[in-house]
Design a protein around this nucleic acid. Structure first.
Lengths: 205, 205
DNA sequence: GTCTATATTAAGATAGAC
DNA sequence: GTCTATCTTAATATAGAC
């Protein structure tokens, strides 16, 4: 019994995820979610009470999927910055190829409701920037990298990795290339981004 | 008479711009646009026939505002790459501080309707990447910069400039800073981004 | 727990007076 | 050209049978 309930609940959540990530909160239709799940609308309300609650469940799940990816850069103590940059870039790009709608979904909905980030901050697993900051400062002092602000490095890293997926339609239009060529370009970026940033923080002799 | 018409039409467009850029196509309400403009819903239909058409007018206007900013980097023949990167970064960040909703609006709606970029491509003033590409190749051959793919440099430049505004709520959350501190960080980036990219394409001796 | 049928509300769009 | 009133449709949500 309990298993059945959990199963359906989960099935709805997965279906809702697909629709919300394609259409956003406002564009999504409960009917479409029901169709996607192969059940009727009433069931959605039975399990999640309202569209709003269903949406928030989807959003929380999506964020909890991407947060560890970010947090790994910030909190892992065992690798130096050079290696962290490489690791993040590599794993993030592979990760996002599997979840292409995710970055747009997160960004879009955070722009719709600026305070929602506070709800997320309160949750366990929210990325902790202060550890990354401490590491940057430490490596600067040890003379491993040249002086740089941790905030800027962090913003660079995320911008270079995330934006090209967010703006894929725009770039394809500018560069006049198709999906395949764009995917190759993204694959190339694993090397490209690491080189750019490592070259930047490295101390010149 | 004609002036009156044009004036109201324009007033509606400006009001619609505000609402659409805050709420997106799906989230915007015709009633809200009418309120913003201080008129009634019927007027919106009188001038723009449907929500779809009104939206497209707003989008076209928004895009025509940002396209020249991009095109300036791509097509200006009189400055070398080093200077172009500086100019673009400087002027883009200043520009976007004045139009904070614009990047999110463009990106979001292009993700909703991937084919819409084709409509834009057909328009006059659409940024022409091939000129930029030619310039990069030329400067590489002349030994002014080290070998690099024009596409990647272009993606870097736009990512570093645009994403931090798109993801402002996210970054404020991660870095735990307020609007003022974030604005300062963005101001700093004018220098920061130029340095990062110029350092990257410069030939090491 | 799952369905069909229906209530309720709200949005886009139009008719028609002025 | 501008308004009020209204039509139509569609979406969220609920009631109630099974």
């Amino acid at each position: 019994m309990k298993d059945e309930k959990t199963q359906t609940e989960d099935h709805i959540l997965n279906s809702a995820e697909k629709v919300f990530q394609r259409k956003g909160m406002d564009g999504a239709r409960m009917q479409e979610i029901a169709n996607e799940a192969g059940i009727n609308k009433a069931m959605l309300h039975y399990y999640y009470r309202s569209k709003r609650f269903l949406f928030e469940a989807v959003f929380a799940k999506a964020f909890s999927l991407i947060a560890p990816e970010i947090d790994r850069v910030l909190s892992d103590d065992n690798t130096d910055l050079f290696q962290k940059i490489k690791n993040f870039t590599n794993s993030y790009i592979s990760f996002i190829q599997k979840h292409p709608y995710l970055p747009n979904f997160i960004i879009q909905e955070l722009n719709r409701d600026a305070d929602f980030i506070k709800v997320l901050q309160a949750k366990k697993g929210f990325p902790d920037f202060s550890k990354f900051e401490a590491q940057v400062e430490k490596e600067v002092q040890e003379g491993k990298i040249r002086p740089i602000k941790a905030e800027q490095l962090f913003v660079h890293l995320l911008s270079l990795n995330i934006f090209p997926f967010l703006a894929a339609p725009l770039f394809k239009g500018f560069l006049k290339i198709d999906d395949k060529a764009y995917k190759d370009l993204m694959e190339e970026r694993k090397e490209e981004i690491s080189n750019l940033l490592i070259n930047y923080i490295k101390i010149k002799e």
